[in-house]
Design a protein around this nucleic acid. Structure first.
Lengths: 156, 156
DNA sequence: ACAAAATTCAACCTAAAGTATGAATTAAAA
DNA sequence: TTTTAATTCATACTTTAGGTTGAATTTTGT
């Protein structure tokens, strides 16, 4: 839409300039005819004027061609991973909140008794949780559970 | 340097074109004078030719103005770390080759018996290695050893 | 309010992990 | 070559881990 307007503007300007030039030339012609002045100068001036007109026109029309496009392609820098828990894996395994806590503390290197003290529950409770945990995760040992949990990103 | 050559080329082309046009005009002039043809057409053709010449000249000279600069600013992504073992930590702890193997297999979730089978040694040997391992690493359990080893980058 | 799931705990048992001591063999360093 | 460190193994013991059953309580979703 803008280009159309610009083109129209250019055309109007061109038309106007042409009209003015024609008048000028007509005046020059009569003047030259009357006083019988140098014909070559007349032609030369016409050539010069129209050359300049052409240059002006071309510059006017070729103006929007000088485009400068700067594309910044920035990719995120992952210095340290933010760690995003794999909720889907937890869901599919059916791990409960408490079981996850036990799993996390196991991964931190705590024994069952230490976990019990940390969570203010008995050793029996921790054992129950861990046992259910292993069944749900389909592992035999806490070390396997830790390995699997870390590879599945369900603990930190 | 290139722009200078281009300018020279353009000027040479311009000079050549001018010469040819002058000859053409001279020929036209004589022809028109002789047969006394329409003067307006003569002037018009001159105007047209020189307008076109001006346009051509302008486009030729204004050519380097249509610059398209594309700047791609790409930042490196550190997807997965290559993992570099911390030999210094292993040295300071005084861990032997075999102890490291046991530690690695522990971290993979293997039991002592499984480790023994994997390394073709007895369960006693694995127990000895693991026990010495814990003393050297100053930990009480295999889970602690795994945690510490991973944080110190001495195993994968 | 009711049913299902989650959490808690106990008691008993087996398996595995971990400690301690002693010793034989092998590989590497002085 | 001799000494030291590493590797290997056994035996006995203690501690922890893990499994099973059963049950009480709480939370949660319908």
């Amino acid at each position: 839409m803008d280009s159309a307007i610009v083109k129209n503007k250019s055309l109007l300007l061109y038309a106007g300039s042409l009209a003015v030039l024609m008048l000028l030339l007509k005046w020059l012609e009569y003047r030259l005819v009357i006083i019988n002045y140098s014909f070559e100068i007349y032609i030369g001036s016409i050539a010069l004027i129209f050359t300049l007109l052409g240059i002006w026109l071309a510059l006017k029309l070729a103006k929007p061609k000088k485009e400068i496009i700067i594309i910044e392609k920035t990719v995120e820098v992952s210095g340290d991973r933010p760690f995003e828990i794999n909720s889907a894996a937890i869901e599919t395994m059916g791990l409960s909140k408490r079981e996850l806590e036990v799993l996390q503390l196991m991964s931190n290197g705590l024994s069952n008794i230490e976990i019990a003290e940390r969570l203010f529950v008995s050793l029996s409770t921790v054992k129950t949780h861990s046992s259910n945990l292993f069944q749900k995760m389909d592992v035999k040992r806490r070390t396997q559970a830790i390995e699997k949990a870390k590879s599945l990103n369900i603990i930190e």
